[in-house]
Structure formats: structure tokens, C-alpha cells
Nucleic acid binder design. Structure first.
Lengths: 309, 309
DNA sequence: CTACTTCCACAACTATTGGTTGTGCCTGGC
DNA sequence: GCCAGGCACAACCAATAGTTGTGGAAGTAG
């Protein structure tokens, strides 16, 4: 049984004649005749009384008509259910407190009609996240993915170059500098806890170390932000790096100092991954929003050369 | 969109791989691949994640699956709704108090699982009733239809040869006869009120008159059974004819006499009309019931020669 | 690391289907 | 009785859905 056959039956039932139904469907009267005959043969029951002035429903036809309409409506619902935009856009972020999550949140507030879910997949690295996008587990993911690891079928759009800032305690030698250069950090110890190898964070800091000769200590478990901030506040040699817009490690309570980095400004290059050709309207709106609200990046920036662009 | 495509999608979703779904549907794996590709193209959304060990649903697929199942279930319901036997059998009888209606009623009582409607269409003659059957207004009709008027597509099965009896008042010359022959009625006046020309009753009594030289008075309006019985009771010359099993014109209250007719016994030849090939199980059961319970007809019967058989 | 297996997609070909046009029959109105 | 409207049948054609054969990707065993 074919859907078009049901549509044809409904058209005939409503117009009362084959020719009118044929006109409505843009096919010939003979095609309508064939379709109805096929339907009646399939369900082994005649549905229409053919007269010389048209056709009307017989008893079985009257019984069948509402069912046919219901089938068509159900199909319409099924198609509607997966139409792009009919379900919330699922966006994956590494962490709800860093810049991408905040950008998504700002977008959501200014587009209240946009339905979306923000999730944090526990993926080890950006490549796995890209596959999650490809497989449809999420619609988009903010990651720092090397250009050569973007799988076929995934588009990568670079947004939100977030400048890094040095976070130090009040006793640190650089605590009162208005800004510093990455090269100035050569002799200092930078501690970023809880970064496992092969994650994209590790790759980024590795590239940063290589570029400027830093000693970034990524070892040791992460005991949480409070423990890190306590350690920073008490130490005159320890420092860490944070994104300029991050919502955590905010120095208010510990008299910590955020010191901008310049010449060049290292930026964490967030990349939005999504399926190529994805038509989800909220995704389109999000991309537009990010493009237009992306703050002007400083002209002298540094980012790993492997990042997608 | 085709139903088989939805069935295929459900099969793939449930088995987890194309080959298994193909086996289930009795087609090749490549055909399944094509169908799924066509479905995904049609709704412009991918539904499955292909891996090297099978396929699983992605987010849209998970959304779509229950809708697809619902469509299939709705179609199943639609087909079920017109499956022969799923709705009550509609049987048309001329009158609820004559033999066919009583036979149908006996059938209904002994087949309590059989769902049926008994209606009395106000059709002028048997030919119109046959067309009502053909058009599906009713499923079957008890009529006395000439054999040459049975339309194509209608089957006629002769049941219930109901012997006629003479009904007279106590003062009638034949009131005390144990039985009479139709030929004995030659000089008597027989009055059957309310019979309009061109009805099957009129045709039957016309044939009866012609065969035995009776004078059957069919004129005058029908003032009802009570008026007829009153007239019979008061008259020594008036008589009428009734079927032997009729539930009306029963002589209890008026001291009327029912006198059997023999040599030959005129019978009213009821014919069951139904659509050729109608598979309605209740119709089949009814026909079987009528065939097996039909009382043995007397060997010396008369019926119009034009009746179907 | 290589070879094998499993699973899906693509290509080429074929069979079937569903469409078209042309025509005929039936019925109802003039 | 003739004409017009409406549906069905036949023949033909195009589009579709099926087949087999093959290849690539990814997991698995040796």
C-alpha cells in the first residue's frame, strides 16, 4: 500500500469524482482509477460506488475514509517530528563556566524562541566529540580540534578567540604588572591541574609551552577550584592560566590577580563543530549570532597552528 | 514515501543491522540500504549511524522510530476496519414480522457472536433492493427477485419457501375446511390491501392469479392489520392470503381461521441477495444456517416461474 | 602488522510498477 | 435516439525498486 493511494482515495471521497481528484493531484483520471482499483484489491473490499455521474462512498468506504485520513495525519506528524528545528538543538560544551557556554547562554537569552539543550559530553578529546556530532548524539560541539582531524561531513567554524590571562596570588613577582608577554613567563612555574594527556587542553598547553619555552606543570589531580585558588593565594611562585571571560577562578575572594598577556596574546581557539549542511534553524541563528557578536580579537594573537580554520 | 520504507526502517532499528532487516523482509541488503537512503533523503534528515558492526539510531532516528511505528499501526487499524467481518452485517428484510425476519432472528439468537443489523429499506421493488446490495448500502436482502433481473455481481440464493394459507372469518364458506386447493378459490374474492403495482408482492400475486384464475383485489389503501382482521371477521365472503409463519394477522383475537393450501401449495419464494464473493463471515454463517434449517418443503409446491434459482 | 570478517554503499543491469494516451462502455439528460 | 459525462481497459513508456557484483572501512583474530 502506498501513501499516494490513500491520498487519492481521500481526494475522490471529497470531490465525488475521479476526474476532479485527478486534477487536484495533477495526474490523469486513469491513474486515479488504477490507484483506487489497487487499493480496493489490496484491502479486498470495494470502497466506492461508481455511477454515471461520479462516485460515492459505500458503507466500507465510509468506514475507511476516517482511517485513511488518520494515516495521512500520522505520517504528517512523523515527518514533522524530525523536520529540522522541531526538536531542541543540542550543543555540547566542554564546561558550563567557560566562554563558549556563556556565549551560548547569551544567545539563548536574546533568542527566547530558540529551543536548545546545552550538554557536557564526557568525551576525552575533540576528535571523539567530532564523532559524536557526526553520529547525531549532539548537533554541535565547541572544541579545539586540529584541522587535520576534522572528519568528513563535519564543518568547523572558529569562534571566540579567548585571550588567556595569568592568574597569580598577591605575593607573586608578576602580581602588579599591568600585562606580561608569554616570553616573560619563561622562568616561572605554571600549574594547571587535572589535565589528562591526549585531551585537547593538554594539546593546547603543550603547543603553548613549545612556542614560548614555558614549563607548564599539568600533573596532579584536580582537587577543585577552591583548592587551586587557595594554593595560588598562598604561593609566591605558582601561577595558572585562565580564559579572560571564565566564570570561575575569579579572584574576588582570594585577592588573586588576573594579568593580561600581550605581544602576542595567546588565545584559546574555540571551534564550533557541526554536521555539514545541517539545516537546524537554531544552529544557523547561533552561528550568525557568534559571527556578529564575536569581540574584535587583538591583532597580535597566538594560537596553535594546528587548529581548524 | 512508501509504507514498506517505514517497515524497513523499523526492522533496521530493531535488528540493528541492514542484513538482518533484509532477511526479515525477504529482500537484499542493498535494497534495504536503498530504502533507508530514500527515506533519509525524503525527510532530509539522517536517522541511522552506520558503523562497521551495524547501525544504530541517532537522535533523529530515536525521535522518528515511534512515529514510524504509529504510522504502521494506524495503517493496520485502517485495514482492520474494513476487513470482512469487522463491522456488523446489514441485512435488509421487507418486513420484520414475516418469515425471513424471523429466520434471521433465530440465526442471531443461536449465533450470539455474530454482529448484525437488520434494516427495512423502503425500496419499491426487488430490483432496487438488488442495487442497494450492489452499492454496499446493505450486505444482503431477502427479496423475491425474478431470475432475469439479478444484476451482474449479485448472487441470489433461494431460501424459505413459505407456504401460503388462506385467512378467513368464521362465517366464510371455507372456514371449516381442513385444507383447500388454489383451484378451489376460483369463485372467491381475495383481498390484499395496500399492494402497489410494480412491487414484488404485486408481481407474486399477479402470477398466482394468472396460474389459478383467482380474483385478487389489490386495490384500496391499507388501513392496518386490525382493520383488515375486523373486515375479515365480519365478512362471509372476504378472504386474504398470509404466509404460514407470519407473526401478524394471527387469528387469535378475531376467531379467524388459517386454512392451509395444498395441491399444489403456493409458496412465497424468498431469495437472499448478496454481493458475489462477499466474504463476510456472518453472511457465510447465515447462509449455512438458512440452508441447514430450511424446513423440508412439500413436494407439490407452486411458485412463479420467474423467480431466481 | 597482516589477513580475515562483517557491514554498508556504489555501480550496472533488469524487472516491475505506475504513469500516460487512446478508446470503449454505461448511464442519465435532452 | 443522441450526446455528454464519467469510469475502466489496453497498449505503451518512463521511472522506480529490485537484483548481483564489487569495494571500502572498521573491527578482530592470528
Amino acid at each position: 500500500m502506498d501513501i499516494e493511494v490513500l491520498r487519492t482515495f481521500v481526494a475522490v471521497a471529497e470531490t465525488g469524482q475521479f476526474q476532479a481528484a485527478a486534477d487536484e493531484l495533477g495526474i490523469s483520471q486513469q491513474a486515479v482509477s488504477k490507484r483506487i482499483a489497487a487499493l480496493e484489491k489490496h484491502i479486498e473490499v470495494t470502497l466506492l460506488v461508481r455511477t454515471s455521474r461520479g462516485s460515492r462512498l459505500n458503507m466500507d468506504g465510509q468506514v475507511f475514509l476516517p482511517h485513511a485520513k488518520k494515516v495521512l495525519a500520522t505520517i504528517e506528524q512523523a515527518e514533522q517530528a524530525v523536520r529540522p528545528g522541531s526538536r531542541p538543538l543540542r550543543v555540547d560544551v566542554l564546561n558550563r563556566r567557560i566562554a563558549p557556554a556563556q556565549a551560548v547562554y547569551r544567545f539563548y537569552r536574546s533568542h527566547s524562541e530558540s529551543d536548545m539543550d546545552v550538554v557536557t559530553l564526557s568525551k576525552e578529546n575533540a576528535s571523539q566529540a567530532a564523532h559524536a556530532v557526526l553520529e547525531g548524539i549532539v548537533d554541535a560541539s565547541f572544541r579545539a580540534l586540529p584541522a587535520d582531524q576534522v572528519p568528513a561531513g563535519i564543518s568547523a567554524e572558529r569562534f571566540l578567540e579567548v585571550p588567556l590571562e595569568l592568574l597569580v596570588g598577591p605575593g607573586h613577582p608578576l602580581a602588579d604588572m599591568p600585562w606580561v608577554s608569554p616570553a616573560d613567563l619563561g622562568g616561572h612555574r605554571i600549574w594547571i591541574p587535572g589535565i589528562r594527556p591526549s585531551t585537547e587542553w593538554a594539546m593546547f598547553y603543550q603547543a603553548l609551552s613549545d612556542a614560548f619555552g614555558l614549563s607548564i606543570d599539568a600533573l596532579g589531580p584536580n582537587f577543585g577550584d577552591e583548592a587551586l585558588m587557595d594554593a595560588l593565594a598562598d604561593s609566591s611562585s605558582l601561577a595558572t592560566l585562565v580564559g579572560s571571560g571564565d566564570r570561575y577562578l575569579w579572584p574576588q575572594t582570594h585577592d588573586l590577580r588576573r594579568i593580561p598577556l600581550h605581544e602576542p596574546t595567546p588565545v584559546y581557539p574555540h571551534v564550533l563543530l557541526f554536521r555539514s549542511g545541517d539545516q537546524h534553524p537554531v544552529l544557523t541563528a547561533l552561528r550568525n549570532h557568534l559571527r556578529t557578536t564575536d569581540p574584535r580579537t587583538p591583532h597580535d594573537v597566538w594560537a596553535p597552528d594546528w587548529v581548524a580554520r
